[in-house]
């Protein structure tokens, strides 16, 4: 069991938080997505989503591009190379741990 606890503590904390994990999953599946799509998919409030995006940006996991579409502001997010790798690694770690738990139960 201590090994598993160690494995859980090794999880990437920045991604492990459920809302940020959902954001990462959306961006992993696409080249980029705008703020509105992320808002709809994650079900977060605007403020919460902004805060999570800023944290992921600070961790160099995604880039935020602010621009205009016509007269309206338009924010687009995309995963960086590091972000893509971090998400893949997280998934691998998570799946292997989940498998271990399954085998034992």
């Amino acid at each position: 069991m201590p090994d598993k606890i160690k494995a859980i503590s090794n999880f990437d904390r920045l991604i492990h938080e459920p809302s940020r994990l959902a954001i990462m999953a959306v961006l992993f599946a696409s080249e980029s997505a705008d703020f509105k799509f992320l808002l709809n998919t994650t079900g977060l409030s605007k403020g919460n989503l902004s805060a999570h995006l800023r944290k992921l940006e600070a961790g160099d996991y995604l880039t935020i591009t602010k621009g205009f579409k016509g007269n309206y502001p338009h924010t687009t997010c995309a995963l960086t190379k590091e972000g893509r790798k971090a998400f893949k690694d997280y998934q691998k770690q998570y799946l292997s741990l989940a498998k271990q738990f399954e085998e034992e139960s």
């Binding site: 859980i8 492990h16 459920p18 994990l21 959902a22 990462m24 999953a25 959306v26 992993f28 599946a29 696409s30 997505a33 799509f37 998919t41 998934q91 741990l97 989940a98 738990f101």
Partner: peptide, 18 residues
């Protein structure tokens, strides 16, 4: 174990959106 986020489903839904 911990709060689950169905990343597979989110990834699939995002790809299907196109």
């Amino acid at each position: 174990m911990f709060e689950q986020v169905d990343t597979k489903k989110i990834i699939l839904k995002t790809k299907q959106y196109e």
